[in-house]
Design a protein around this nucleic acid. Structure first.
Length: 481
DNA sequence: TTTTGAGTTGTTCGA
DNA sequence: GTCGAACAACTCAAA
């Protein structure tokens, strides 16, 4: 009997084998399987991938290719537009197509069009939720509308009942041959995802192991030593107290469901960490909320969630923006965060709030400039979390910070990096500053290193200016003209 | 329909 | 040093 037509698994942001419903379903179909990644540099998402994301993607794809080979599968890569998937599927003689759903506006539109074309060509499509605990539309108010406040959202989310346990990874795949008539495949290296001149990825290589194995190792390490005490220590950038799973989640190297069940299992064995587990899972809840907001607001990355912010008097200040991006604002906690970002492709969550507040409130620079910088430099930048968090910091988002909340970078530094270890790690100019002055070196005459800048804006003046500017917006309930 | 309680992450001031 | 109040009223979500 002639060999069966293959099942095509179209991989996107779900680069894993375990708890991979699309892959598992394809494997269970009894057909030979083709695992296909189409590289379009973010075109189908309406936005080019950032540099750090490109670096991560390269290594994630390499890891996935290796993992697939171990079970008899193969990863095939094409440099092609996502909208060409129907033609590609036809050239591969695919009998069915499987994929994991995605939730950005352009992605949904793309997948809808692709699905319609495939169905039109008689090729069935099977799509799955592999990315979130629940679909963004499942959580609604009693009257059926989208939620706009985090706490009721997460309460309602949990009230929908238990989350199904994760699926095991397939143990064996039968890879279909690549037909000679199909488009020519692309070697991973030919995608040009790695930086060359210069190679700025040294810090990333030191910090991260992209791929499913790296994700599982990170989770195991967090469950072993980070989860206990998480509720208290998660705000301390000087300590290794957070999970650092976000880039792995971004590329779907591990599922939220896997994390949820692993934490619950650990909690069952040690009830003393119930508070820690709840706090940590609430962060997973924020991710769910961000995707909920994105689904209901497709232009979350570019449009103020609260329209009254459209009138906000943002400043244009290229010099200040540059000082912020390179970590030379003169505020040590801000500069340490921005340099951590540049060097490692990551920033501690507490510090993200501090640098975000600084850009938006001290410098009065549009949050979208910060969002774009994070998009380019964060390994974990995704269309939901990055946008929702920036809007939250700026005060224009859902359930946002009140306008009068202006982080004082000195107090924040002293509170959350009390010995200054975090600052010293990333700001070598201050390596020998005493703890008493590490967050305000300008107060120690003679100490201020000749190569560390004075504050680009005085905190008190900047705070007053921000309060005045934000007050011009008036109440949210201002009737429309 | 109206009412009611609640709402991630802070700072400053004055007692 | 520590504490409570003020900051500004708003919207959300459910009863």
């Amino acid at each position: 009997m002639a060999s069966k037509s293959p099942a095509l698994v179209w991989l996107r942001d779900d680069l894993r084998l375990a708890d991979q419903p699309a892959l598992s379903a394809a494997a269970a179909s009894g057909r030979p399987v083709l695992c296909l990644y189409l590289f379009d540099n973010g075109d189908s998402a309406g936005r080019a991938l950032g540099g750090a994301s490109r670096w991560w993607l390269h290594h994630s794809l390499a890891a996935l290719a290796g993992a697939l080979e171990k079970i008899g599968g193969r990863l095939d890569i094409l440099h092609a537009a996502h909208r060409d998937l129907p033609a590609i599927a036809a050239s591969l003689d695919a009998a069915e197509v499987y994929w994991t759903r995605r939730y950005g506006g352009p992605e949904i539109a793309c997948d809808k069009a692709v699905k319609a074309a495939l169905l039109g060509a008689g090729i069935p499509v099977h799509s799955f939720n592999g990315q979130l605990l629940r679909e963004p539309w499942e959580v609604t108010t009693k009257s059926g509308g989208p939620m706009k406040v985090y706490t009721p959202f997460w309460r309602a989310h949990r009230a929908l009942g238990p989350i199904a346990p994760p699926l095991p990874a397939p143990t064996a795949l039968k890879a279909a041959p690549w037909p000679s008539m199909a488009p020519t495949r692309c070697a991973l290296g030919d995608l040009g995802l790695l930086p060359t001149a210069p190679d700025w990825a040294g810090g990333l290589r030191e910090c991260w192991t992209p791929g499913e194995d790296g994700a599982r190792a990170r989770l195991a390490s967090f469950l072993g030593s980070g989860l206990r005490g998480y509720a208290d220590e998660r705000n301390r950038p000087d300590k290794p107290s957070t999970s650092r799973l976000s880039p792995h989640l971004r590329f779907g190297e591990i599922s939220a469901r896997t994390i949820l069940h692993a934490v619950a299992h650990r909690e069952a064995a040690a009830s003393a960490i119930a508070d820690d587990a709840a706090k940590f899972l609430a962060e997973i809840g924020w991710r769910e909320f961000a995707y909920h907001l994105l689904f209901h607001n497709p232009d979350l990355a570019t449009r103020n969630y609260q329209p009254r912010f459209d009138a906000f008097p943002w400043r244009t200040d290229a010099k200040a923006l540059r000082a912020w991006t390179i970590g030379r604002t003169g505020y040590p906690i801000v500069d340490a965060g921005m340099r951590e970002l540049w060097r490692t492709g990551f920033m501690h969550n507490r510090v993200r709030m501090i640098v975000g507040s600084f850009l938006v409130k001290h410098l009065l620079i549009d949050w979208r400039a910060g969002e774009q910088w994070f998009w380019d430099t964060l390994c974990d930048a995704d269309p939901a979390n990055n946008s929702a968090s920036w809007q939250w910091v700026a005060g224009c988002g859902a359930d946002a910070a009140p306008y009068f909340r202006v982080f004082n970078p000195v107090l924040q530094g002293e509170k959350f990096d009390p010995a200054g270890d975090y600052v010293r790690r990333f700001v070598p100019e201050l390596a020998h500053a005493p703890a008493k002055f590490i967050h305000k070196p300008w107060e120690a005459p003679g100490l201020l290193a000749r190569d560390y800048p004075a504050p680009i804006v005085p905190h008190g003046d900047a705070r007053e200016r921000a309060l005045r500017a934000f007050k011009t917006l008036g109440g949210a309930g201002e009737p429309e003209a």
